[in-house]
């Protein structure tokens, strides 16, 4: 990749601060491969995996370091559903709204989650514990309806089970915050 900016040193220093060593190293590796700009989506995946979402500062740093126009980086980040531009809660709840789940009552599970958490799809609960999202299809249609909390799939969920499932994760969050304040 050709470098067109005259403040390359500064770009790299900022990127290290904003993105962390790992992502910067990955972009460095991409630069040695053919068509490095094609790794933009992979880079954004890495940033999101590390920080949970893509902040404006992240996108900026990626654009600078990969020498891709900022407009294109934010265009890509906002095009794909998988990328989040807002911070998310400790746990991300993903309700599958695929066909199989839908005909088996996923809408009622989703409604129950919204009632319990007091938020809608795409929002984060005020305590910062849960972010509620919907997915097109999690590909586990045989177990419909399903919801996924982080990477844990909960099969054949009924609205009645929702409070119990939430309670389990709230417990984890509570213990974590206790451990944190204890330490």
């Amino acid at each position: 990749m050709s470098v067109t900016t005259d403040n390359w040193e500064q770009v790299q220093a900022t990127a290290r601060q904003v993105l962390g060593e790992e992502v910067v190293a990955f972009i460095g590796l991409c630069r040695d491969e053919p068509n490095p700009e094609s790794q933009l989506i992979a880079v954004l995946h890495k940033v999101q995996a590390q920080y949970g979402y893509l902040a404006a500062a992240h996108l900026d740093a990626v654009a600078q370091l990969m020498q891709i126009p900022a407009a294109k980086v934010s265009g890509v980040a906002s095009f794909y559903h998988y990328f989040r531009l807002q911070p998310r809660g400790r746990f991300v709840i993903n309700v599958c709204m695929g066909t199989a789940c839908y005909v088996k009552g996923a809408d009622r599970v989703a409604q129950k989650l919204m009632d319990e958490l007091g938020i809608r799809f795409g929002e984060t609960s005020t305590d910062g514990v849960f972010t509620l999202e919907s997915s097109r299809c999690l590909g586990t249609c045989g177990l419909a309806p399903v919801m996924m909390v982080d990477n844990q799939v909960h099969p054949e969920v009924t609205p009645d089970q929702v409070p119990l499932i939430l309670e389990k994760y709230l417990d984890v969050a509570r213990r974590e915050s206790q451990a944190e304040s204890g330490a």
């Binding site: 790794q39 989506i41 954004l44 891709i68 890509v76 794909y80 998988y82 990328f83 097109r136």
Partner: peptide, 18 residues
């Protein structure tokens, strides 16, 4: 990254290209 349209081959190509 979660875009249904990327199953279409020309869209998929654009996506691989970043």
């Amino acid at each position: 990254a979660g875009a249904f349209v990327c199953g279409e081959e020309t869209a998929l190509i654009h996506s691989i290209e970043g």
